[in-house]
Design a protein around this nucleic acid. Structure first.
Lengths: 155, 155
DNA sequence: GCTTGACCTTAACTATGCTTGAGGTTTTAC
DNA sequence: GTAAAACCTCAAGCATAGTTAAGGTCAAGC
């Protein structure tokens, strides 16, 4: 018995194979693993072997990222998938529904910002006290682009 | 003549005053200055004094940031404002127009992503080769959220 | 049986957008 | 005229999302 056939070869993927098929770099897969986004088995020689399901998982991660969701949130969402069995189409659809509504919210806020920017183009009022863009408290809130974009209580 | 009245007091603002009025931290103003987003005069004692226009400038920076534009881009946009005179309302409106169209583009891409996510909710197909979300080459492109979200030529 | 390519780990580096701390100076207020 | 508040610079630190490099091991082809 060779050392390496513990995680059944042919049914599992090496990190290089996953990288090629999923389009993400090997280093990224390592990184995702340290963040708990994906998991692997190891061969006797300590090499990673992934179940095929990892491809869908990586695909889902990339889609979620494109919607603007940070990796940490993606991780906790994925952690809520049923343990012990491979996720079903409905499991993924459920996740998609949650993310879809977050995406909706992002789009809503950006559209609001756009409309107000429209109003301001005419008047150049960008720094006047009355300009809605200057007073983001009303309905806009932070857009989550970075650590604390705007002071909550800056009077 | 005291050392400090070189940049006319009452007509200029200290960094603390700008912080209070604009709602951004003093450290942030320092940071913006190192990045060339704002500029200051110095008193004889080496303290910053800002022309009042800095308030509008900071306001504009914050608005631009909320639309998702990185500071470096904001800097180069601001650098194109006419030198030698204070920017007019039309100058700011011109900037707003440019940013408005970038914001438009962002919204367009996110909406497209949302629609496709809708399609996928029904089928749970997120990792199938035929799923549009898996093949972002078509019309979606990178969303600029981070360094290289997707491999351009990953076959 | 040995060379080469793929893999391993750990640490450090990139970029963005700031904040925090240390150690020292200036201004302001009394 | 002195104490406190505000300011200064420079360096390091934090968070996010990775990449790159160094130094070594594993596996596969010939």
């Amino acid at each position: 018995m060779s050392k390496s056939d513990f995680p059944v070869p042919g049914q599992t993927l090496s990190v290089g194979e996953v990288a090629k098929r999923s389009g993400v770099a090997v280093s990224t897969l390592h990184f995702y693993e340290t963040k708990g986004l994906i998991h692997s088995l190891r061969t006797g020689g300590n090499q990673r072997r992934y179940p095929r399901g990892v491809l869908r998982r990586v695909a889902v991660i990339k889609v979620a990222q494109r919607t603007g969701i940070p990796l940490a949130s993606i991780q906790s969402a994925l952690a809520k998938l049923p343990q012990g069995r491979a996720p079903t189409a409905e499991d993924w659809a459920e996740l998609s529904r949650v993310w879809r509504s977050e995406l909706d919210e992002r789009i809503r806020r950006l559209s609001q910002l756009r409309d107000q920017l429209d109003d301001c183009i005419g008047c150049g009022c960008l720094s006047l006290k009355t300009c809605p863009l200057r007073n983001p408290q009303d309905a806009l809130g932070a857009l989550g682009a970075g650590p604390r974009l705007l002071e909550p209580g800056a009077g």
